[in-house]
Amino acid sequence: MTKLRTGVVGLGWAGTVHARTMAALPGVDLVAVSDLDPAKHTAFPDIPLYSDVEEMLRLELDYCVIATPSATHEHYALALAAAGVPALIEKPLAPTGAAARRIHDAFTRTGTFAAVGHTERHQAPLAELARLLHGGDFGELWQMETRRQGPYSGRILDVGVALDLLVHDVDLVSWLARQPIESVTAATRTLAGPYEDTATATTLLRGGVLAHHHADWITPFKHRQVQVHTAAGVLTANTVAGTLTHHPNTASPPPAGSFPGVQGGEARLITLPAQEPPFTVEHRLMRDALLGAGPRGLVTLAEGAHAVAATEALLTAAGSGQATAVTAREPALT
C-alpha cells in the first residue's frame, strides 16, 4: 500500500490522539508535527518538530491535521489550502460562521480536499443508528433529543460549551435526519466564565423535525446520548456505554391521515458490528479518500460550516431570547 506522508499541527489532547492514530495506521506515515510548545514534542521524540508551519508544508505532505485552538483554524487552514495540502480540520471548523465559510471557499477555490473532524459520527452506536435510519428500517422520523454532559476538562479555553460540545450534536441531528437546521431557540448560563458552561436548545430542521439539546461541563459524570423518536419506536444511542437500544412502538396502524399514538413493547439491545476507534475510522476514511476511494463517510467542509452556523445561531438566540434563523449555505449532507 502507498504510504501517505502526513503531519499534525497542534499537540493538545486532540492533536496527540490524531498523531498516535496516524503513526499506527497502515498506509500512513507521520513525518512531521508542529506546536509552539517544545515540551509537547516529548510524546513524539522520533518525529521531527516544526515551530514554523510554512517550513513543515515544504515536506510535500499528502494531508495534514489542524488541531490547534479553534480561533487559529482559519490561519492554518488558509495556509494549507494555498499550498494545496489536503486537510483534516478538528471541530469546530471555525469559531464563527463567516470564518468557516472562508475556509470552505479557500479549499474549493484551490481544488484541495479537506474534511472536518466530527469524530462522534464514527462512534459505533451512532454509526449503526444512522445506517438504520437512512435505510428506512424505522419509518418516519418524529423528533430527536441529545444530551452531552461531563466535568470541565480544562482543555478548552477559547470557546464555551456550545462550540466545544453542543456543536457535535447539531451536526449529528442534521446528519441523522439528512436535513439542514433552519432555526434555533436556546438558553445558556455562565457560571465561571468567560463563556457559557451550560446550554439548552431546540433546533428546527427542514421538514419540521424538532431536536432538543442539552450540553454542559458542570456534571461530575460523563453522559453522551442521542435519542431518536420514530414511527417504529425510540432508538437510544449511548456512546459511554457503547449501546444502541430500541424501545418499540407496537401501536396498530392508524386510519389514513391520523396519528397512531404509541404503545410500548419489550426493549431490545441492537447488536453492533465490530468497529475500530472513532479516530482510527476517521483516518482510515481520510487515507482511502486520498487514495481514490472518494470522500464517503467523512464530514464535508459544507457540513462543518453548517454546524458552526447553527451553533452561532444558538448563541445569538440565547442572547436575544428569540428564535434565530440559521443563515448559511446549503450543506452537502452525506
Rank of each mutant, 00 (worst) to 15 (best):
M1W: 12
A293K: 04
G261A: 01
R121G: 05
T236A: 13
E303A: 10
T21C: 12
R284Q: 13
E196F: 05
L191I: 11
L49Q: 08
F221E: 13
L204A: 00
H118L: 09
L301K: 07
G135V: 14
D29E: 15
V161W: 01
G265A: 15
T2R: 15
H247L: 08
P254L: 04
T42N: 04
I89Y: 00
P38H: 07
L272D: 11
G84R: 08
L210Y: 11
K91R: 15
L290P: 07
V281T: 09
A82D: 12
V33A: 10
H104S: 02
P38S: 14
V167Q: 05
E145L: 14
E60V: 12
A83D: 00
A199T: 14
T280L: 01
V8I: 09
T188Q: 10
E330T: 12
V228R: 01
H229P: 09
G294W: 10
R20F: 05
A186K: 02
A199K: 00
A215E: 00
L176H: 07
L244D: 02
V299S: 01
R155G: 10
A325M: 11
T236K: 12
Y50S: 04
H104L: 06
L30M: 13
G111H: 03
E145V: 15
P331C: 08
I181S: 02
D216K: 02
A43G: 04
V209T: 03
E196L: 08
G261S: 06
E182P: 08
T2V: 13
A124T: 04
E90V: 02
L93T: 00
V209I: 01
R268P: 04
L129S: 00
A251V: 06
H104G: 06
G292T: 01
Q322P: 03
H223M: 07
R5S: 12
G15P: 07
A98H: 12
F107K: 02
G304Q: 00
G297D: 06
L191M: 05
H212C: 11
G84Y: 00
R268L: 10
P69M: 13
T21R: 09
H18Y: 09
V170A: 03
A186F: 08
V326A: 04
A32V: 13
A289T: 02
H306T: 00
Q322E: 14
P180S: 05
E90K: 04
L132F: 09
L235N: 01
T96N: 04
P45Y: 14
A100Q: 02
V167C: 15
T311N: 09
A99Q: 13
R189Y: 08
W142A: 12
G257Q: 07
